[in-house]
Simulated assay, not measured.
Amino acid sequence: MFDRCKMLLKHVDTASKGLVICAMAVMTVLVVTQVVFRYAFSSAIDWSDEVARLAFVWAMFLAIPHGIRAGVHVGIDALVTRFSAALQERLFRLSAALGCILMLVLFYFSAQVTVYSWPELMPTINLTAAVYYIAILIAAAHSTLHLLLLVWGGSETWSEETMS
């Protein structure tokens, strides 16, 4: 069952990674195009700043669960490294469980903000301002899945992939 859940999460990660790459590409193309238009043509694309900002927000939030999976988020372990391996593992799982609770709280409040901001439109494009918060909802849900898997499998959950 653990391996099946891990495989499903790998598929979610693959899709998410593709979205991060697309969002970064959109942001890059729009910013470069905007610079060219401003300096070469003394003109501007009125919606490019907003769409580039939206792409940046989506890329950053969708990348958070990948950092959780790889274990690259900032942590202070000066004290924890002095404990036995068994205690370190228990603390790792506790930390993942607490992180999971935090992500569920984030999901709850971002869902409320998404609903609240849904009627509000962006200034330059006919799109709800809630799309900024939808990225947070997705990131919180995806992060929760990763943290639950880490609580279940422990610190070695993804270790075979980081070695290759």
Score class of each variant (00 low, 15 high):
Val113Gly: 03
Val12Phe: 14
Thr157Cys: 10
Cys22Arg: 08
Ile136Thr: 13
Lys6Gly: 00
Leu9Ala: 15
Ser159Phe: 07
Gly67Trp: 06
Ala139Asp: 05
Gly99Asn: 06
Thr81Lys: 12
Met1Asp: 12
Glu160Met: 13
Val74Tyr: 05
Leu137Tyr: 13
His66Arg: 02
Phe37Val: 02
Thr28Lys: 07
Thr28Gly: 14
Gly153Asp: 07
Asp3Gly: 05
Ala63Ile: 00
Met122Leu: 15
Met122Phe: 12
Trp118Lys: 06
Tyr39Leu: 08
Ser110Ile: 06
Leu54Ile: 14
Ser155Glu: 09
Leu79Arg: 06
Pro65Asp: 00
Met163Leu: 14
Ala140His: 07
Ala86Ser: 12
Val80Met: 09
Met122Pro: 04
Ala140Val: 15
Leu121Phe: 04
Ala139Phe: 09
Phe2Ile: 08
Val74Gln: 10
Ala130His: 01
Thr33Phe: 10
Leu94Ser: 12
Lys6Met: 01
Glu161Asn: 01
Val72Asp: 00
Asp77Pro: 01
His66Trp: 01
Phe61Tyr: 11
Thr144Gln: 07
Glu156Ile: 14
Gly71Asp: 09
Glu156His: 10
Asp13Pro: 02
Leu137Trp: 03
Trp47Glu: 04
Thr157Pro: 04
Ala23Asn: 05
His142Phe: 11
Met24Gly: 00
Phe83Arg: 14
Ala44Met: 08
Ser117Glu: 02
Arg82His: 09
Asp77Trp: 07
Ser159Val: 09
Trp58Thr: 11
Ala78His: 06
Tyr132Val: 04
Leu147Asn: 07
Ser159Arg: 15
Ile136Phe: 13
Arg90Thr: 09
Ser155Thr: 14
Ala25Arg: 14
Phe109Thr: 13
Met163Gly: 09
Glu50Met: 01
Asp13Arg: 00
Thr128Arg: 10
Leu62Ile: 02
Phe92Gly: 11
Val80Thr: 03
Val105Gln: 02
Val115Ser: 05
Val32His: 09
Val26Ile: 15
Val35Thr: 08
Glu89Cys: 07
His11Lys: 15
Met24Thr: 05
Asp77Ala: 11
Ala111Gly: 11
